[in-house]
Write a protein that binds this DNA or RNA. Structure first.
Lengths: 201, 201
DNA sequence: CGCGGATGGTACTGATCGGTAACATGCGAG
DNA sequence: CTCGCATGTTACCGATCAGTACCATCCGCG
């Protein structure tokens, strides 16, 4: 019963694949991967299961695409920080930590989607685990590199400490809530940056 | 598939309730709560679903009992530490941190069962969440009290930092593995205890 | 116009899961 | 012994889920 416009409506819907990934992202993150069925994702994307399976070979493949997307966005954060403060590693560190702690404050309290997925998908050979592990290892390496570049004397140690603080803040959101120790993340991390020994320039 | 009885018909088997809880504990922790069916638990406990449902009103009730048991054992760790070094709060702190980091080293890399459960059971009103939140809040309070008792000038801040390090170490086991930053937990925490400002006695 | 590929809709399969019914067995207490 | 209670066994129900078959529809393109 719709009148056909000369040109398909300006606010044309994004293609189904994108809608499905967006819906999967929201539902997987909010309710958990195992708790969300493909039917719910398709419906939430305004399409149906058949179309979903035309774009993703299986639910696991959709999960993998979901995690890859998140990992890529996480990597992009580092690049943004580098573009924002080129050559200033410490400023990059601080802006990254700020982003993470803001996220912890504003988010729904569900923590890191990658870490959550690793917990939900316990099978050691699950394809998702490769993606998660690769991203986390990569993040740790970038963090270490930034700490070294910023002139700290023990970059590995400082990076690991920051890494644990960030991971702890995100996971503790779900058990101690937003008013818990996660709310102190930025203050704690910043104080670490201030007091850690560094090379004289 | 591969569910062998946890106990192969010993002379005096523990009562079924205990066997069921033990099996649930192992399977829930290793494979995840949502991934384990009640049938598998009953079989692994050397009994069957009916007996399970005669002792637990529902799977959720079994999950609750499982989490309560873990929380109680976690609390017992604090009491053990207190009994081991009565009146010496700092020694209690160190022995607790040692236990946690040893666990992180030896365990299967599945982290904190309570935190995992909070991630798997995302519904905000799930009965399990009350147990988890209560235990984590309680732990944070005990940690803060110990830091205060040990004479540190900023007990809340130190306690939160230790809390985040511990939680981060446990959750990162699953994404970065045992050789990841979690392996530095004790060194990082001990250095925090050494360098944090404290009241002169 | 007609064609073809992408999409939507419906209905189905086979498996699994939480939970229950009905009945059989064993065992200890009186 | 017999009674009663906890446990074991089997079968089942209804719901849900991943994945598929089949067909209708839409739309761009020649």
């Amino acid at each position: 019963m719709k009148q056909r416009p000369v040109r398909p409506a300006a606010p044309q819907q994004p293609p189904p694949r994108r809608r499905i990934l967006a819906a999967a992202r929201e539902l997987f993150y909010r309710d958990g991967i195992r708790a969300v069925g493909v039917d719910a994702i398709a419906a939430s994307a305004g399409t149906n299961k058949m179309t979903l399976y035309r774009h993703f070979a299986s639910k696991d493949a959709l999960v993998a695409a979901y995690l890859e997307e998140l990992a890529a966005e996480g990597d992009a954060l580092w690049d943004e920080a580098a573009a924002q403060h080129p050559g200033d590693a410490e400023a990059q560190l601080r802006v990254l930590l700020k982003r993470v702690s803001q996220f912890a404050d504003e988010s729904s309290g569900r923590g890191c989607a990658l870490a959550n997925a690793a917990i939900e998908l316990a099978e050691k050979d699950h394809p998702a685990r490769r993606i998660i592990e690769r991203h986390k290892v990569h993040s740790r390496e970038r963090l270490t590199a930034l700490c070294r570049e910023a002139g700290y004397l023990h970059p590995e140690r400082l990076a690991d400490e920051l890494f644990l603080l960030v991971e702890g803040a995100r996971v503790s959101l779900q058990s101690v809530g937003r008013k818990g120790p996660g709310s102190r993340l930025f203050a704690l991390a910043a104080e670490l940056l201030d007091t850690s020994p560094r090379r004289k320039p």
